[in-house]
Structures are given as structure tokens and as C-alpha cells.
């Protein structure tokens, strides 16, 4: 079940809470134009309670800490790559037990009323961490798992993951003489998570901040596990200009490469610009507009590789059609 009362912040409200709820201070080492930094701030702005933040190994972990420094203003823990959801399970279970017996009621230095957020990248979610997430969701831990999907192992230097899209150049799917980029498509991670019957799942493009904030808040309010698939531009790994980050985040939605929707107790609902595209199909932009801003797809624009763009477009169309049917269009 997802709570009915929906929090819809306006820009003034946002300006007010932004300064109060900054989870990560400036001075972190995320790249210019990195989508993850925006996602982190949006999660914190949408928080209804204090947060305990569990982080999988990855760019965010590496770029926000290096002993003796930390960028985090909130309780934060990193254990390993594949187990963030399991760690989150343990934290949530402990919180539940300790709160139930009023363990720290006499200790003014401890706060037990918090939400558990688990953040992982695409490697930690599509690939190595999938089992732990599946287990945590099956067990119905009240955690919100956020996937920041930059579509490759960026922290180790741009290797392909199960989240890397078709055609993309990575260091393990190079553009060779025979095989050009990744020959396979992205794993349907939302379908996998929704199949667990969790109360709330949604896609988020941080460019649409109001849509994002509402979804993060709904995730926190869900009575059970929530999964948010957040689109995260990576200028370094994608060969895009840092100043194009938000533009790419928008184009991903406008081309239906990354449609915006939520699944509430199994019911699909389109949100944001994806609604108007569903109603007016001619607003759907061709994938070239999204692809051409990114060096990782550059080879696909050579005349002999045009088939790759067509294949990419076909995949996007098919995914979109499926989603439209599920959302009742």
C-alpha cells in the first residue's frame, strides 16, 4: 500500500528545504555533470524522516568518502558491492526491534525514527547485487532501494553492465572491426523488481525534479519495499558534455528511451512528459536526438552502422508499446 496523501512541493518549498536537508556537502569528488549528485540531493529533499543511508560500492561511495574525510551529513554506511540491500535489511530489522522495545528511550543521543535508503549503481543492481535486492524485497523490508543507472561500471573505468544499452561503447564492449559496441540490450530491471509484488516502483529522470521528488517521497511512504530506477547521466563514461547532463536526462524521456512511470501495488501509471507523449504520439522524438549527444554511440551514425540506430529505435518502440498497454493506453 502507498499512502494516498501525496506531497507535491513547489519551488519555494524546495528552496526552503534544500539548505536544511543537504546530505552531501560540497567538496565531494563526483565529476562535473554527474547525475548521481543530483539524485542524492533529491532523495534527501523528499525525505519525510531522518535517513540512514546504505551505499553499495561504486562512484558515489568513492567520490564522497576518503578517510579521514566524508561528505555525508547523515548516517552513512558502505560495506561491499553486492550486498547493500542485505545490509539495509539488517539495519531495518534492527531499527524495528530496538524501537519495539524502546531500547533508547532513555538515551537522548540516539534517534530510532528514521527511514532506510539503499543506493546502488547499475553494476550493484542489475548484476552483482540482484540477489540481495530480490531477497530483501521478498522479505518485505521497509527500505527504499534507489538505482542510479549510469549504464556501465563507471567507477572501474567504463565496463559494460547488464544495464548498458545496445550499441554503447564501453571498455569491455569496444567499437571493434567486427563487433561494434554492446551487441545486447538492457536487462528489464523494472520488470524484475515489479515482479516481486512490491508496493511501489518508479522510474525517475532527475531533470523532472517535481516528478522525481514526489516519487522519492512515495517510496519513503510505501508500506514495504520501494524501488526507484533513477536515470543518471555520466559525462565521462558517455562522452557527453557536462553541461548537457540535464538535456540528455530530458531527451531520454522525450524519446521514450527512459519513460517516466510508476507502479503502485501492481498498477502502472505514466507520469510527467511520458503522459503527453502517450496522448500525442507525434511528440515522441526519434532516438537519434538522444544518441547524438553521446560519444558512446558515435559509431552508430556512420553510414554502414545505421542499422544499429534502427535496431535501437525498434527496441525503444517495442518497450514503449508494452508500457502503454500496461498503463492502459
Amino acid at each position: 500500500m502507498v499512502a494516498k496523501a501525496v506531497w507535491r512541493p513547489d519551488i519555494k518549498e524546495l528552496a526552503r528545504i534544500e539548505g536544511q536537508k543537504r546530505p552531501v556537502e560540497s567538496g565531494h569528488r563526483l565529476c562535473a555533470g554527474c547525475g548521481a549528485g543530483i539524485i542524492i540531493r533529491q532523495i534527501a529533499m523528499a525525505a519525510r524522516k531522518p535517513l540512514v543511508w546504505i551505499n553499495a560500492t561504486g562512484c558515489v561511495e568513492v567520490a564522497t568518502t576518503i578517510f579521514p574525510y566524508t561528505s555525508w551529513n547523515i548516517p552513512w554506511a558502505h560495506n561491499a558491492f553486492e550486498n547493500a540491500a542485505a545490509v539495509g535489511s539488517g539495519v531495518e530489522a534492527a531499527r524495528k526491534k530496538l524501537a519495539r522495545v524502546n531500547r533508547f528511550d532513555v538515551d537522548p543521543d540516539v534517534e530510532l525514527d528514521y527511514d532506510v535508503i539503499v543506493l546502488g549503481g547499475d553494476g550493484g543492481t542489475y548484476d552483482i547485487g540482484l540477489q540481495a535486492i530480490s531477497g530483501a524485497f521478498e522479505r518485505r523490508h521497509k527500505i527504499m532501494y534507489v538505482l542510479y543507472d549510469n549504464e556501465a561500471y563507471m567507477n572501474t573505468g567504463i565496463q559494460r553492465s547488464g544495464g548498458t544499452p545496445f550499441g554503447a561503447r564501453t571498455t569491455t564492449t569496444p567499437v571493434g572491426k567486427v563487433i561494434k559496441g554492446k551487441p545486447l540490450f538492457k536487462k528489464p530491471i523494472m520488470d524484475i523488481m515489479v515482479a516481486h509484488g512490491i508496493p511501489y516502483a518508479a522510474t525517475v529522470s532527475p531533470a523532472y525534479w517535481n516528478d522525481a521528488l514526489v516519487k522519492f517521497r512515495k517510496g519513503f511512504e510505501a508500506e514495504g519495499p520501494a524501488f526507484i530506477h533513477a536515470f543518471s547521466t555520466c559525462p565521462l563514461g558517455w562522452g557527453s558534455a557536462p553541461e548537457d547532463t540535464v538535456k540528455i536526462m530530458k531527451l531520454a524521456v522525450e524519446t521514450c528511451v527512459f519513460p517516466l512511470y510508476e507502479v503502485v501495488d501492481g498498477e502502472y501509471r505514466l507520469t510527467g512528459p511520458s503522459v503527453s507523449i502517450a496522448k500525442n504520439p507525434d511528440r515522441k522524438k526519434p532516438v537519434e536526438e538522444y544518441l547524438k549527444l553521446q560519444g558512446r554511440f558515435r559509431h552508430m551514425f556512420k553510414p554502414e552502422n545505421k542499422w544499429m540506430i534502427e535496431k535501437f529505435q525498434e527496441w525503444v518502440d517495442r518497450q514503449w508499446e508494452t508500457l502503454l498497454k500496461r498503463a492502459g493506453y
Partner: peptide, 27 residues
């Protein structure tokens, strides 16, 4: 009165125990 997490692997068993201990529990 304890929370017993029937995890999906031993890797998660110790990971969850770690998280629980860090959150203040005896695990």
C-alpha cells in the same frame, strides 16, 4: 523477542548481521 531475517544466502546473512550490529543491535 528477536528479528530473525531468513536471508537468501550466507553472504547476505553476514551482511545483514553487520548492518544490524551497526544499527545498534546484538546480532
Amino acid at each position: 523477542d528477536m528479528e530473525f531475517i531468513r536471508v537468501e544466502s550466507e553472504h547476505s546473512a553476514l551482511s545483514a548481521s553487520w548492518g544490524a550490529a551497526l544499527a545498534g543491535a546484538r546480532a
